[in-house]
Design a protein around this nucleic acid. Structure first.
Length: 861
RNA sequence: GCCCGGGUGGCGAAAUUGGUAGACGCAAGAGACUUAAAAUCUCUCGACCUUCGGGUCGUGCCGGUUCGAUUCCGGCCCCGGGCACCA
C-alpha cells in the first residue's frame, strides 16, 4: 500500500475495474427489487459545470446506496442535445451545430467517466439523433389524430430588423440581442398540444406525489391554477357583437364600470380605422416583450374605443377600452373591470377617470373608503339590485343562476395553465412532422416516412438566421395523401418535447417502437434528481407526457417520478465593470482578488490581470452570462474526483444552494488523506484480520464504541432523508474517534470495526478511495458487495443517561441518572443539585416537566 | 407584479421536527515537530460581564402562543429561484 494518498492512481485503477467487470451494466431481473435512479440529463454546452457535478454526484450517491442495499439499480445518462446555444456557437465558429454538439458530448462524457459515476453507458442516448426524435414525431402525429394537437395564432417576440422570432433570452431590456432595436409582439400560427385536457388529472394527482418536495407540489398546483367562475356575455351597444368574459368574482358583477379588450382585438382594430389616435395607441401596445413579468410590471395603459357594452344585469352602458394588459392570446381577449374590488382595475379607473362603485361591504360592518383603495376581500353585497344583502359566497351562485336562466352566461371551471405551444422558429431542433398541402390541408407525416430528418450538413456564418427555412430541399415534399407537391412544416419542436420522455427511452434504447415491455419493469423512476429551476416547466411537461404515453398504451403507470429531489443552485460571487455604453463585462472569480475586512466581509475587488478595481455584483447562480463559473476540471485534476464529490456533498444539504469556496475543497481533501493515513499505519495487522470483535472493552473503549454506533445510526437516518452533508460529518466524527484509540488488541478490534463502517458509509460518496482501501485492508473483494452496516443495539445501551436541568426554562445544571430511573428519582436527583437550588431560591415549585432522556424543567415562582 | 423558497458565529453549516443553539468542517490565533517551509499533531475560537464558580444577551426585525420557540402563529425587511421561446 502506498504511504501517501495518490488519487489519480487510485481512481484510474478503480475506474478500469468497474469498466472491465461491467459493474454498472444492468438488465431486467423480475426476481430482484429494482431501483431506477435518474439525474436530469445535461445540455452538451461544452464542458461540465459545477451544477452538473453536484447533480450527478447526488444521483450517484443515491444509486450506489441503493445498490449496497441489494437492489437492481439502473442509472443511465444521455444528452439533451437540441437547443439554442448550438446555433449561437455555430454562428460564432462557422461550424455546423451537429458537429459542435457531438464534439461536446464526447468531451463531457470523458469528464463524467473521470468523476466515477456508475452509469450503464450502453443505454446512452442523444436527443438530436433521428433514432430518438423519430418517436416523438410519431407520437405527435398520433396526438393529432386523437384531436390533442391543434394550430392557432400565438404571440412571439419579433425583431423588426433581423425579421426573426426571438427567444425570451434573446430579448435584453426590451431589445433584440443582435439588432439592438425594441422588439415587438407579433402573432404567428403555431402548433399546440392540449395539456389543458389533462389539467384536472395533473392537478389532482399531485396529491399522490407524496415523496416530492411540498414546495414543488405547491408551485405546480398554483401553476395549473384551477379556478371556478362564471363566463358571461356583454353585448356591444348598437350591434350584435358579443364580448365573452370570464370572472372568478361574479359577486362583484354589479360593480362593473368598464370592460377592457386586447389592443389586437377585432373591436379595437375596427374602431381604430376611423380613429388615428387609437391606431397609434394600438401600435404602441405592440412594443415590448411577451413574458408575464414584463406584462405584469408594465405601466397599465388604455384608451376608450368610443363604443359601449351592455351590462347583462343592469342594462347600463359601460365604456369599452383597449388596454395593454389584456392579451389576445390568453383567454378570450376581453375582461370585465370592477375598480371597487380589484387593485389593477382601481388604479386604471383612477388614471382615466372611470367611476368606482362600491358593491361589496366588509362583513363586520366596518367602513371602507373605496376611492382610496379597492376592497378585494369577500363581503356582503349592496347596491346590487336583486342580489342585495347576499354574502359573496351566496351571490356567486345567485348571479351565476340568474345569468344561466337567461342564457347570458354559465358557471365554468378555468385554468391558469395554457396549452403547450411546441413550435419553434429555429433550426437546431426536431422537425415538426406535418405537411401543408394546397388541396388536402394539413397532413401528418405517416410512420413509414418517419423520421423527418433534420439536415445536419449545413453551412453557418454570422448572418445565418435559420438554414431550415431557406432550404428548398427540405421544405419541398409530396403530399402523403394526394401525392401532389406540398410544403413541409419548417418549425421545429420545443426542446421540452425531447426532455419529456427520455427517462422512458433509457429503459429500452434500442426498441423498434417508441417503448417496449422493458419500460414497465423499470418505470416509474424511483428517484429523480435535478435543479429546482425545473420545478414547474420540465417536471410538469414530463408528467403530462407520461400520461400521453400511458394513453397510447406504452406504459402502465400514471406518474413518471416517484421520489423527487430538487437540488439547490451552485452559486458564486459575481464581478463586473460597467462599460461606456452601460453594458456590463463580467469577470471570472478565478481572475479576481477580493479584499476583505477583519470581519471577513468583502469590501473591494481587483482584477488580477490589470490590478484595477471591479464591482462586486453579489452571489448568483453560476452561469456563462455572469462568468462566475468554477471549472470542475481544474479541481478534478488537482484533487481527484473523490475530493470534488466529497466537497460538494459536505458543504450544503442537497436541496439548498451551495456557495462556492476554494478553501473548503482543501478541507475535503485533507479528510481523505487522514482516512488513508489511518488505514495505512495499521494496514499490516488490519489486512491480516487478526483482530476480531467480541473483545472485552474497557470503559473508554465502550464509550468510543457507543459513539461510533450512535454516529452510524445518525448517518443511516441521514441517508434515508438525503442529508449527505450530515453523513460526511458523521464519518469525520467516526474518524476522529478512531484516531484517539490506543494500540491494545481491543483497540485494534474497535479500529477494524470502525473502519469497516466508515468505508461503507463513505463508499457511495467517495467510491474510489473506499473501494481501494476496502480491498487493501482485506474486508473483501468489492465494497459494493460488502453489505450495508447496521448499528449494534447492545453498543448503544447506556447505564447512566445525561440530563439537563432547567429552572424556569434556563439551563442550570447537567446531571446523570441511572437508565432505569423513574420520574420521581430523576426529579430528586435534579433537585439535589446546588446550582438548581440556588435558582429556585425562595420560590415554590409549581410544576416539574421531565422529557425522557433529555431534560428536566422546574417551574418555580 | 404574481407564485415558491431562504435568512443561525469571521465563513459553510448542525440541532433525529416544540426540549442543552453552534456537532462537523473552513478561516484565524497559540503551541509541538522541523535548520526552515510545507505537511502533520495538540489546544482556543458567538458577544458582553466575571470574584473564573458562573452570569446576562444571542438563530433577519417587531409582536404572540407555551413551563420551554431556530422550530408554531400574525405583521414587516432583505436575498434567491420560477413566470410558459435559456435549459
Amino acid at each position: 500500500m502506498q504511504s501517501h494518498y495518490d488519487p489519480a492512481a487510485v481512481e484510474a485503477e478503480v475506474q478500469s475495474h468497474w469498466e472491465n467487470s461491467g459493474t454498472f451494466e444492468v438488465t431486467e431481473d423480475p426476481g430482484r427489487e429494482k431501483f431506477y435512479c435518474l439525474s436530469m440529463f445535461p445540455y452538451p454546452s461544452g464542458k461540465l459545470h459545477m451544477g452538473h457535478v453536484r447533480n450527478y454526484t447526488i444521483g450517484d450517491v443515491i444509486a450506489r446506496y441503493q445498490r449496497m442495499l441489494g437492489k437492481n439499480v439502473l442509472q443511465p445518462m444521455g444528452w439533451d442535445a437540441f437547443g439554442l446555444p448550438a446555433e449561437n456557437a455555430a454562428r460564432k465558429n462557422r461550424a455546423a451545430p451537429a458537429a459542435w454538439t457531438y464534439e461536446n458530448i464526447q468531451y463531457m462524457k470523458s469528464q463524467l467517466k473521470s468523476l466515477g459515476f456508475g452509469y450503464d453507458w450502453r443505454r446512452e442516448l442523444a436527443t438530436c439523433t433521428p433514432d430518438y426524435y423519430k418517436w416523438e414525431q410519431w407520437l405527435f402525429t398520433e396526438l393529432y389524430r386523437k384531436g390533442l394537437v391543434y394550430r392557432r395564432n400565438a404571440v412571439v417576440n419579433w425583431d423588426p430588423v433581423d425579421q426573426t422570432v426571438l427567444a425570451n433570452e434573446q430579448v435584453i431590456d426590451g431589445r433584440g440581442w443582435r439588432s439592438g432595436v425594441p422588439v415587438e409582439r407579433r402573432e404567428i400560427p403555431q402548433w399546440f398540444i392540449k395539456i389543458t385536457d389533462y389539467a384536472d388529472e395533473l392537478l389532482d394527482e399531485i396529491d399522490t406525489l407524496e415523496e416530492w418536495p411540498e414546495q414543488v407540489r405547491t408551485m405546480q398546483r398554483n401553476w395549473i391554477g384551477r379556478s371556478y367562475g362564471v363566463e358571461m356575455n356583454f353585448v356591444i351597444d348598437g350591434g350584435d357583437e358579443v364580448l365573452t368574459i370570464y370572472t372568478t368574482r361574479p359577486d362583484t358583477l354589479m360593480g362593473v364600470t368598464y370592460v377592457a379588450v386586447a389592443a389586437e382585438h377585432p373591436l379595437a382594430l375596427a374602431a381604430a380605422e376611423s380613429n388615428p389616435q387609437l391606431a397609434g395607441f394600438i401600435d404602441e401596445c405592440r412594443r415590448g416583450g411577451t413574458t408575464e413579468a414584463e406584462l405584469e410590471t408594465a405601466e397599465k395603459r388604455g384608451m376608450p374605443l368610443g363604443i359601449h357594452a351592455v351590462h347583462p344585469v343592469s342594462g347600463d352602458k359601460v365604456p369599452v377600452y383597449a388596454a395593454n394588459f389584456v392579451l389576445m392570446g390568453y383567454g378570450t381577449g376581453a375582461v370585465m373591470a370592477v375598480p371597487g374590488h380589484d387593485e389593477r382595475d382601481h388604479a386604471f379607473a383612477l388614471k382615466y377617470g372611470i367611476p368606482i362603485k362600491k358593491v361589496i361591504h366588509p362583513k363586520d360592518g366596518s367602513e371602507w373608503d373605496i376611492q382610496a383603495a379597492a376592497y378585494v376581500e369577500k363581503g356582503v353585497l349592496r347596491d346590487s339590485g336583486p342580489f342585495d344583502g347576499l354574502t359573496s359566497e351566496q351571490a356567486f351562485d345567485a348571479i351565476a343562476g340568474w345569468l344561466e336562466e337567461r342564457g347570458l352566461g354559465e358557471k365554468r371551471k378555468n385554468y391558469r395553465l395554457r396549452d403547450w405551444g411546441v413550435s419553434r422558429q429555429r433550426y437546431w431542433g426536431a422537425p415538426i412532422p406535418m405537411i401543408h398541402c394546397a388541396s388536402c390541408g394539413i397532413v401528418p407525416v405517416p410512420l413509414e416516412d418517419l423520421p423527418v430528418r433534420l439536415p445536419e450538413d449545413i453551412v453557418y456564418d454570422e448572418d445565418t438566421i435559420n438554414p431550415l427555412k431557406s432550404d428548398p430541399a427540405f421544405a419541398m415534399c409530396h403530399c402523403p395523401e394526394c401525392g401532389g407537391e406540398a410544403q413541409r412544416e419548417t418549425d421545429t419542436f420545443d426542446t421540452f418535447m425531447e426532455s419529456s420522455w427520455y427517462y422512458a427511452r433509457y429503459t429500452c434504447p434500442d426498441a423498434g417502437a417508441m417503448l417496449d415491455s422493458r419500460a414497465d419493469y423499470w418505470l416509474p423512476v424511483d428517484h429523480y434528481i435535478g435543479g429546482i429551476e425545473h420545478a414547474v416547466l420540465h417536471l410538469l411537461y414530463a408528467r403530462f407526457y407520461h400520461k400521453l404515453l400511458r394513453d397510447a398504451g406504452l406504459v402502465r403507470s400514471n406518474e413518471p417520478f416517484t421520489r423527487l429531489l430538487t437540488q439547490g443552485m451552485v452559486v458564486a460571487e459575481t464581478f463586473y465593470r460597467e462599460e461606456a455604453d452601460g453594458s456590463r463585462s463580467w469577470f471570472n472569480p478565478a481572475d479576481v482578488t477580493v479584499n476583505s475586512d477583519d470581519k471577513g466581509r468583502p469590501y473591494s475587488a481587483v482584477l488580477a490581470g490589470d490590478g484595477q478595481a471591479v464591482q462586486i455584483g453579489g452571489v448568483e447562480k453560476m452561469s456563462k452570462s455572469k462568468n462566475n463559473g468554477v471549472d470542475p476540471q481544474t479541481l478534478i485534476d488537482r484533487y481527484g474526483a473523490d475530493t470534488v464529490r466529497l466537497y460538494t456533498m459536505f458543504t450544503s444539504p442537497p436541496d439548498q444552494s451551495l456557495e462556492w469556496s476554494d478553501e473548503g475543497v482543501e478541507g475535503a481533501s485533507r479528510f481523505l488523506r487522514r482516512l488513508w493515513s489511518l488505514a495505512e499505519t495499521h494496514q499490516q495487522w488490519l489486512a491480516a484480520g487478526e483482530a476480531q470483535a467480541s473483545m472485552t472493552l474497557n470503559e473508554i473503549q465502550q464509550a468510543a464504541r457507543r459513539e461510533l454506533h450512535e454516529l452510524l445510526k445518525k448517518a443511516l437516518y441521514d441517508y434515508q432523508r438525503n442529508r449527505f452533508n450530515n453523513v460526511v460529518s458523521a464519518c469525520m466524527g467516526m474518524t476522529n474517534i478512531l484516531y484517539k484509540l490506543e494500540d491494545s488488541a481491543a483497540d485494534r478490534s474497535l479500529l477494524r470495526e470502525g473502519l469497516s463502517l466508515i468505508l461503507r458509509l463513505l463508499g457511495p460518496i467517495a467510491p474510489h478511495v473506499t473501494h481501494h482501501l476496502w480491498h487493501e485492508l482485506g474486508y473483501g473483494e468489492d465494497i459494493l458487495q460488502g453489505g450495508w452496516p447496521e448499528p449494534d443495539e447492545e453498543a448503544l445501551k447506556q447505564e447512566r443517561i445525561p440530563y439537563v436541568v432547567q429552572v424556569n426554562g434556563k439551563v442550570r445544571a447537567s446531571i446523570e441518572v441511572p437508565a432505569d430511573a423513574d420520574n420521581a428519582l430523576i426529579q430528586s436527583i435534579a433537585l439535589d443539585n446546588d446550582n438548581v437550588q440556588r435558582f429556585i431560591g425562595e420560590g415554590t415549585i409549581r410544576k416539574v416537566i421531565v422529557v425522557p432522556s433529555k431534560l428536566v424543567n422546574i417551574v418555580a415562582k
